[in-house]
């Protein structure tokens, strides 16, 4: 493993499998236990540095760190020195001086975790940067797929929606490819990046054609604001062409699952009856997020000398 987890490409197949296997062992070791706490990272300090509101991701990382007995500091941009104009670099150096061993960073600017990694000696974990990547989301998605389907090699995954602006899509495309899955991205052409031809994916504009062949359908959040920038004409047209409703769910194979990184726009990209169906892994994904993030923190921090 590298010292930082900045993007899915930091993980080769061996590393990615190690994270998933470790998460599975942690899951199993903690299953049914009253004391869901391990002493592994006692005395280590993990900082959650969140420049964007994301309660679910922050809580997931916080829980993961606490279950490994690390000290956790939550540092959110609002109401802090950051809102008084402190630069990312100064914030990083301050946190380092306070003895942080790892910084979990969520930032609206693509590449902010890469910058951070240049300035601190501890590990940096990307918890979502702009429209770039969200590698732990991809890891928990891969973990969920493997748990449900028993494998990743050869699994056919359709990623549907706003690929252009989605850090979840970028991380999943890279990681799932690394792990041997076959990915198809489905979106209106306006929501696919120029240059997608170089990604290891199939591209389709037709959701109905893709669904019958998919083992996994991963729906991405589509923000209604995109409509105002003419990425698509109306929410209704988007939903009609690219939303997953009960009728479309009927086209899926028997064992196919439906995923969503959350938060969902029910009625936009996913219908309520799909989100709540037995195919949906949305609740499992949340739980798996904690195990996967424990595995990541253990593997990044466990063996390193403290910063």
């Amino acid at each position: 493993m590298k010292r930082h987890l900045l993007e899915a490409a930091d993980l080769d197949r061996g590393d990615a499998t190690l994270v998933l296997d470790t998460a599975a062992q942690i899951d199993q070791a903690l299953a049914g236990r009253e004391v869901k706490k391990l002493p592994t990272l006692r005395g280590r300090t993990v900082v959650n540095l969140f420049y964007e509101d994301s309660t679910r991701t922050r809580i997931s990382f916080e829980l993961a760190a606490k279950r490994l007995s690390a000290d956790v500091i939550n540092f959110s941009a609002k109401g802090s020195s950051v809102s008084k104009g402190e630069s990312l670099k100064d914030t990083a150096l301050t946190l380092e001086a306070m003895g942080s061993d790892a910084i979990v960073v969520r930032h609206s600017a693509s590449g902010a975790p890469h910058r951070l990694a240049n300035w601190v000696r501890g590990s940096v974990v990307n918890a979502g940067d702009g429209t770039h990547e969200h590698p732990t989301q991809a890891l928990l998605d891969a973990y969920t797929i493997r748990q449900r389907l028993g494998r990743l090699e050869g699994v056919r995954v359709a990623i549907v929606g706003d690929v252009l602006h989605s850090r979840v899509a970028r991380s999943n495309v890279r990681l799932l490819h690394t792990l041997g899955a076959e990915v198809t991205v489905v979106a209106p052409p306006t929501l696919l990046p120029v240059g997608i031809g170089t990604w290891p994916v199939e591209v389709s504009y037709d959701l109905d054609a893709v669904l019958p062949k998919a083992d996994v359908v991963m729906m991405l959040r589509v923000q209604a604001e995109r409509m105002n920038a003419s990425f698509f004409p109306s929410a209704r047209e988007y939903s009609r062409r690219y939303g997953l409703d009960a009728r479309r769910m009927g086209a899926l194979g028997d064992d196919a699952i439906v995923m969503h990184p959350g938060p969902m726009n029910r009625g936009m990209e996913i219908a309520a009856e799909v989100a709540d169906s037995v195919r949906s892994t949305i609740v499992e994904q949340v739980g798996n997020g904690v195990s996967v993030r424990m595995a990541v923190l253990y593997l990044l921090l466990g063996g390193n000398e403290p910063a």
Binding site: Q25, P39, E305
Partner: peptide, 22 residues
């Protein structure tokens, strides 16, 4: 019982793959 996550010398020994606790 895999004890890796309980070791107090991880920093010196480095991380390793976990084994089952059953």
């Amino acid at each position: 019982a895999d004890i890796t996550l309980y070791r107090d010398d991880l920093r010196r020994r480095g991380v390793r793959a976990l084994e089952p606790t059953v």
